[in-house]
Amino acid sequence: MPIRIPDNLPARKTLEEEGVNVMDSSRAARQDIRPLEIGLLNLMPNKERTETQFSRLIGATPLQVNLSLVRITDHQAKNTSEEYLKTFYQTWDEVRGRKFDGFIVTGAPIAHIPFEEVRYWNEMLEIMAWTRTNVHHTMFICWGAQAALHHFHGVRRYRMEEKAFGVFRHRIVGPRSPFLRGMSDSPMIPVSRYNDIERTSVGDDLEVLIDSDVGLCMLGAKEGRSVYFLNHLEYDNRSLADEYERDVKAGLDPALPANLFPEGDASLEPENRWRSHAHLLFQNWINEIYQSTPYELEAIGR
């Protein structure tokens, strides 16, 4: 089954060119099944790129999915027009009364700011509490994962001496997790962050699922309602390369992303060494939601 997204969303053309099966509203209405309702709280500046990355992975499932794009209510995006946001996004205030089978909270480029000083932190607190009553399962990514680990589990983060930047070998340490079904023992995963979390602050209410020499990658809540992914399997081929080139132009003298360019040559096109694991993670996540979510959407949270 395909993914259902707004008919005129720019990501549609990209996804269709890649062979992702995209469904329009009229076709969806003719299928006599309940689609999964998945929301994406997009906190990234480049909304279009991020929504395309996640739609690509969610749209590969054999199930029908309705994807709702969500944004912070009172926050002015710097890189996305208000007209675009009003056309394709709903605000948190507009979706707070809804129920979702799955919900994704993305990263945000605010890792240098203490959580409580983030301008929309109070709204984030409301959203995180809401995921416990209105969402069957939540996936928190990067800054979203750090924020949720801090809020729900008291996990502490710290600033690393150097930015972890590149594509690094990771270790599957929770092979029995249904979210990691089919993954190889040592997948390559894109990393781009200045912060790590203190291992000593990870309590018994969490299970480490993926680890690496550059920091923890994925943790699961033992109560079974959320997972926390600190890195970026959703990235496309150019994500790290574009970030590197942006920093070069800004005169920041960044290090070359590790293990990204063939032969370490930034003039060559990056190799995607993580795509299959990205699809596995999201298909496993969606399958687990499908297997366990209530048939009646309104029963979620009861």
Rank of each mutant, 00 (worst) to 15 (best):
Met1Phe: 02
Pro2Lys: 09
Ile5Cys: 05
Asp7Val: 09
Leu9Asn: 06
Leu9Gly: 00
Pro10Ala: 13
Lys13Glu: 15
Thr14Ala: 14
Gly19Arg: 03
Val20His: 01
Met23Tyr: 01
Ser25Gly: 04
Ala28Tyr: 01
Asp32Glu: 14
Asp32Gly: 07
Ile33Ser: 08
Gly39Ile: 11
Leu40Tyr: 04
Leu40Cys: 03
Asn46Met: 10
Lys47Val: 12
Lys47Thr: 11
Glu48Tyr: 03
Thr50Lys: 06
Thr52Leu: 11
Ser55Gly: 11
Arg56Glu: 06
Thr61Phe: 01
Leu63Phe: 08
Leu63Tyr: 12
Leu63Glu: 10
Val65Gln: 00
Val70Leu: 12
Val70Cys: 10
Gln76His: 12
Lys78Pro: 11
Asn79Ile: 02
Asn79Arg: 15
Asn79Gly: 04
Tyr84Cys: 03
Tyr89Arg: 08
Thr91Ile: 08
Asp93Cys: 08
Glu94Cys: 09
Arg98Ile: 01
Thr106Tyr: 06
Gly107Leu: 07
Ile110Asn: 05
His112Phe: 11
His112Gln: 15
His112Val: 08
Pro114Arg: 10
Phe115Ile: 12
Arg119Met: 06
Arg119Pro: 00
Tyr120Thr: 05
Tyr120Pro: 06
Trp121Glu: 10
Glu123Gln: 10
Met124Asp: 02
Leu125His: 02
Glu126Gln: 15
Glu126Tyr: 00
Thr131His: 08
Asn134Phe: 01
Met139Gln: 06
Met139Glu: 01
Leu149Ser: 12
Leu149Phe: 09
His150Met: 05
Arg156Phe: 00
Tyr158Pro: 04
Tyr158Glu: 11
Met160Cys: 10
Gly166Ser: 09
Val167Ile: 15
Phe168Val: 10
Ile172Ser: 06
Val173Thr: 13
Arg176Pro: 00
Pro178Glu: 13
Phe179Ala: 12
Leu180Asp: 04
Arg181His: 14
Gly182Val: 06
Met183Asp: 02
Ser186Asn: 15
Pro187Arg: 04
Ile189Met: 09
Arg193His: 13
Asn195Ile: 01
Asp196Gln: 10
Ile197Met: 12
Thr200Glu: 12
Asp204Glu: 15
Asp204His: 10
Val208Ile: 15
Asp211Asn: 07
Ser212Pro: 00
Ser212Phe: 02
Asp213Tyr: 00
Val214Asn: 03
Val214Ser: 01
Gly215Trp: 07
Gly215Leu: 04
Met218Arg: 02
Met218Pro: 01
Leu219Thr: 11
Gly220Arg: 07
Gly220Leu: 06
Lys222Met: 03
Tyr228Phe: 11
Phe229Asp: 02
Phe229Asn: 03
Phe229Gln: 09
Glu234Asp: 09
Ser239Arg: 07
Glu245Leu: 13
Arg246Pro: 04
Arg246Asn: 11
Arg246Phe: 03
Lys249Ser: 14
Leu252Phe: 11
Leu252Asn: 14
Asp253Met: 10
Pro257Met: 07
Phe261Ile: 08
Gly264Ser: 12
Ser267Gly: 12
Glu271Tyr: 00
Arg273Thr: 15
Trp274Val: 14
Ala278Val: 03
His279Tyr: 14
Leu281Trp: 05
Gln283Tyr: 00
Gln291Cys: 13
Thr293Arg: 04
Pro294Ile: 05
Tyr295Cys: 06
Glu298Val: 09
Glu298Met: 12
Gly301Val: 07
